[in-house]
Nucleic acid binder design. Structure first.
Length: 440
RNA sequence: GUGGCUGUGGUGGAAGGGUACCACGUCUCACUGUGGAUGAGAAGGUUGAGGGUUCGAGACCCUUCAGCCACCCCA
């Protein structure tokens, strides 16, 4: 006798039951449609990559979270993908014939062995859209405009995209004279400004052994008004990368405005840092402020990444939507459209008795042939039981084919939401049900 | 990865150390050509797992796993 195995899920992973899948499909559908409206095309890549493809791309902290995926007896060193940008870069490097600029989107699971929490899972979907092969700030701006379109269409009202530039951060380090080895610490500290305030950041820097003099210089910079880009340019006069970064930001926001993005939705934040090591230019992060739920997207320009896979380096920029967080929030606030049903099934065809079963099956198959999602009942049970089932499933329409109907060559159509019933001639079956579904 | 909190049948909750209870849900039956109602009944847990203390543990201790929160990091 086999011993029972306790059914359990691996840490940080979850099943998506049908009800949940309907919601996910809705969100993903919105995102997909907008991606395509902006000219992005789908791409799929294997969930496994060679370890060498992934290693050395994300920085040491992130790298620890990569799942090893070697086959017991296999010879290849494999890993579960950690994000979608690195696989994209690999694809672009392997397929030089792709017409540039290459715009693709990918909505697929990635794996990170982090400690799970609400809205943070070890297996989660990323929704990425990237543009490869242009250095134009218009590409970055288009990404930002697209983020806004998607969030608006999902029903979010208040959000703001924070913009910064890696070049500015680099210049900030140069200007203040931080030892290169301490740069990551510096960035980490700065990034917390909003959260822990100036004093907190100062303490953090002191702990990171950044000299008092350096700290003073950094605060001198941070204190500059963010909207006065000229002041920044002035400070960075002898640090051309910094000026370049500022210019890029200026251009990016100008382009975004040309695409109808409201000025107050863009916030240049020279203290915003994104962790991934491969970013080289503008970086962005969209924060939803009402309701206050924090960062829902993150992205930026990574002009060097493809060059790690190919002699022909190509500039690239893109964003990733935190779709899991979006779904969690939409669940909490019930932001799904009211017509998002409980089931995909439109019609339930009841079976009256053995004599009438063939008639019911014929009706069901006719509806299915007409592309109407239809279920039939399998056993010979009382009508009441069948209706109870349809009702519990949330199926909107029920068809009854009993002796009376068979004799008159009609069927009875019951609308479970209203309780209304009507007789329909067999010949008009599909047509009438279509009408009914459209009005629902 | 670090720290804290939590862990009881499918779900939500209850049980002052003495051998698990309630609600909802599920299933069956009745109401028998029509559901979400009602009535009757049933199944389902050894209290996340493992060990210990005790005459005796869901309750105390240890270990472990998981979830949640904070940190880290990030989507």
């Amino acid at each position: 006798m086999a011993t029972l195995v306790e059914p359990r899920l691996p840490r940080g992973m979850r099943d998506m039951l049908p009800q949940k899948m309907l919601q996910r499909r809705y969100v993903i559908g919105v995102v997909e449609r907008v991606f395509e409206r902006f000219g992005f095309e789908p791409l799929q890549t294997p969930v496994l990559e060679l370890q060498q493809t992934l290693l050395g791309k994300y920085g040491p902290d992130a790298e620890k979270l990569i799942y090893d995926a070697r086959h017991r007896e296999g010879k290849e060193d494999l890993a579960l993908r950690y994000d979608l940008s690195v696989p994209l870069s690999r694809v672009v490097a392997m397929n030089p014939e792709l017409v540039k600029p290459f715009k693709r989107y990918q909505i697929a699971p990635v794996w990170r062995a982090e400690r799970p929490q609400k809205g943070r899972y070890r297996e989660f979907y990323q929704c990425d859209a990237d543009i490869v092969g242009t250095s134009s700030m218009l590409a970055d701006a288009e990404i930002v405009a697209m983020i806004f379109t998607i969030l608006s269409e999902l029903g979010f009202r208040e959000f703001v995209t924070k913009l910064n530039n890696r070049k500015v951060l680099t210049a900030l380090g140069e200007y203040s004279g931080v030892a290169p080895a301490l740069l990551p610490n510096l960035y980490r500290a700065i990034d917390k400004l909003e959260k822990i305030g100036q004093d907190g950041v100062r303490e953090e820097m002191q702990r990171a052994e950044i000299s008092a003099e350096t700290i003073a210089k950094i605060f001198e910079l941070i204190a500059l008004p963010v909207d006065d880009l000229n002041a920044w340019r002035e400070k960075f006069r002898v640090y051309p990368r910094g000026v370049e970064g500022i210019n890029e930001l200026e251009q990016l926001t100008a382009f975004a405005r040309d695409m109808g993005v409201q000025a107050e939705r863009l916030q240049i934040d020279l203290t915003m840092v994104r962790g991934l090591e491969y970013y080289t230019g503008p970086i962005f992060e969209t924060v939803v402020t009402e309701p206050k739920i924090g960062s829902l997207t993150g992205g930026g320009r990574y002009d060097g990444l493809i060059g790690l896979f190919s002699k022909n380096s190509l500039p690239a920029t893109g964003t990733s939507f935190g779709i899991e967080r979006i779904i969690d929030v939409m669940d909490e606030l019930n932001m799904y459209p009211p017509d998002l049903g409980k089931t995909v099934v439109d019609v339930f065809v009841s079976v009256f008795d053995a004599e009438r079963r063939a008639a019911s099956l014929a009706v069901a198959m006719e509806l299915r042939a007409a592309n109407i999602n239809t279920e039939v009942w399998y056993d010979l049970d009382a009508l009441g039981k069948q209706l109870k089932y349809a009702s519990a499933r949330g199926i909107p329409l029920v068809i009854i084919v009993g002796p009376d109907e068979a004799a008159a060559n009609i069927v009875t159509l019951r609308d479970l939401s209203t309780g209304e019933q009507q007789q329909i001639a067999r010949g008009e079956l599909v047509e009438r049900i279509r009408e009914k579904l459209e009005h629902a």
